[in-house]
């Protein structure tokens, strides 16, 4: 059978896909907060903007993340960590996406990473990328996926660790076009 074609998420996804974040009176299945106080692992915040080809921050993108837990397990059976987050860039004054999560452990010998899926008005098909961590230099150098990326573009996938008063923040912008364009994968 033929795959059903993709279409853009459009500008009005918020009340359908992330209603609680946008203060609509409906439950959400997922949010920017993936952890609870009992989740094992290093608590981290991931923050960034989605920039268009003119350098403007995009306020109507939706970012989803998919990650393993602190033991390197997806869909762990021994905890309530779902590993899936969804956040629209329309509620932060600087159009940032913000995820409160934990740093994932290595999976199958790969460097710790998070799968990131990008949706927005003007994107007819969603884009896949990966987030890696700046403090995992040794692991990153060995990573089988990162090593398929041209050397000069690897930095677009590496979130920068910052120690802030509110905890560990990884800063990572998604750049849709241009010199610093984020690497997107044909997954």
């Amino acid at each position: 059978m033929t795959q059903t074609p993709s279409q853009t998420v459009g500008p009005y996804f918020a009340y359908g896909l992330s209603p609680q974040q946008y203060l609509y009176n409906h439950t959400s299945i997922a949010s920017g907060n993936l952890r609870t106080s009992s989740t094992q692992g290093e608590p981290i915040t991931i923050k960034g903007r989605v920039l268009d080809g003119q350098g403007n921050a995009i306020p109507d993108a939706m970012i989803e993340i998919w990650q393993a837990d602190a033991k390197g397990q997806y869909n762990p059976t021994d905890s309530d960590f779902k590993g899936f987050g969804r956040f629209g860039t329309g509620t932060d004054p600087e159009a940032q996406f913000i995820f409160q999560t934990i740093k994932p452990a290595s999976v199958d010998g790969q460097a710790p990473h998070i799968t990131v899926v990008v949706f927005m008005r003007g994107l007819l098909t969603h884009a896949y990328t990966r987030l890696y961590f700046s403090d995992e230099t040794t692991e990153n150098q060995k990573d089988i996926i990162l090593n398929t990326v041209p050397e000069e573009r690897k930095n677009t996938l590496i979130a920068q660790r910052q120690e802030t008063p509110e905890g560990i923040v990884y800063q990572w912008d998604i750049v849709m076009q241009g010199e610093q364009e984020t690497v997107f994968f044909d997954v």
Partner: peptide, 12 residues
């Protein structure tokens, strides 16, 4: 026009 990735996707 300003949102489409301009570089080829990298096969994964």
């Amino acid at each position: 026009v300003f949102r489409a990735p301009s570089k080829p996707l990298i096969p994964m």
